[in-house]
Simulated assay, not measured.
Amino acid sequence: MNIKTIELTFELTSPLSHFGDEPAGTMQTLRRQKFRINNKYEDMPVYSGNALRGILRTLVMTDYFERIGIGVKSVSQNLYYTFFNGGSLKSGGVENLALKTSIKQNCPALVLLGSAYRSMMTEGKMKVGILKPVCAELNEYNRHKTDESIYSGMLSGTFYTRKDRLKSSPENAKDVTTDNKEVMQMKYESEVFSAGTKLESEIKIEFADELEYSCACHMLNLLKESGHLGGKSSVGHGSFTLTASEDLDSMSKLYVDYVSEHKDDMLNWIAEMENTLNA
């Protein structure tokens, strides 16, 4: 069976923020999912596969448009959604084999990640796993085994403050209303994975040809080069080093060369896609 797996290990070099949906006052907690541990279901902090998949899509599509010489801001909304958001379903059929063939020939990343083309949907060949902390509690679920508990310091809290900078420096604008009250600062707290924490995941690529597999490796190489996950990257969160079970540099070459050799065909295809999606 043609299913390939690339194992990934992330080692954080700064705290990682990835907030869940549960409200907790002024504390923003990490996203959690349940795992059966010692015959009980426990909530464990994770980084979602959906979030990682979104980052990979953004990286590879931005890179694709740069390589063929199209500015992302110059494309239509429908085309942007198709490539960067997984598309949006609309009435009007475009179900045909020729379109699927043209996608395969001109944009392997769309084959891997899937999208919607008006009323037609294609499922991606690439499955992205959850990032799980390497900790004793999850030894049953992880490749890496350790005696270190998740509560040994892998989780920590950090806090930030926001203040009204305009009121603290009213000369920066001509119509600021001030009073004699002290400028207030708001404190908010965040739960984070600590620097040094390891997280593991895997990517499965199903029934892909050599070019599509090379594209998947290039996608992961872009992630490795970007070196950031999660929120608050503007204040230094989410940096990491990435180790993969595949030689990403060498395996990316086939895809990179293919895009370079077929750039003109891809430019023409993008124009055709614009017409198809906006008809």
Rank of each mutant, 00 (worst) to 15 (best):
M1E: 08
T5C: 07
F19V: 04
F19I: 09
G20M: 03
E22I: 01
G25T: 03
R32N: 01
R36W: 07
I37S: 10
M44C: 12
Y47K: 08
S48H: 05
G49T: 03
N50V: 13
L56C: 05
G69V: 05
G71N: 15
G92Q: 07
G93W: 07
L97W: 13
L99M: 14
S102P: 06
I103A: 08
P108H: 07
A109G: 02
A109Q: 03
L112K: 02
Y117N: 06
Y117R: 05
S119E: 14
T122G: 10
V134H: 00
E137A: 03
L138N: 01
D147A: 12
D147Q: 13
E148P: 00
Y160C: 08
L166C: 10
L166P: 09
S168C: 02
S168A: 11
V176D: 14
T178Y: 00
K181M: 12
E182H: 13
E182M: 15
M184P: 10
V192N: 09
A208G: 11
D209N: 15
L211H: 14
L222H: 13
E225I: 03
H228S: 09
K232Y: 13
K232R: 07
S234L: 09
V235A: 00
T241E: 11
T243I: 10
H262C: 10
W269D: 13
M273Q: 04
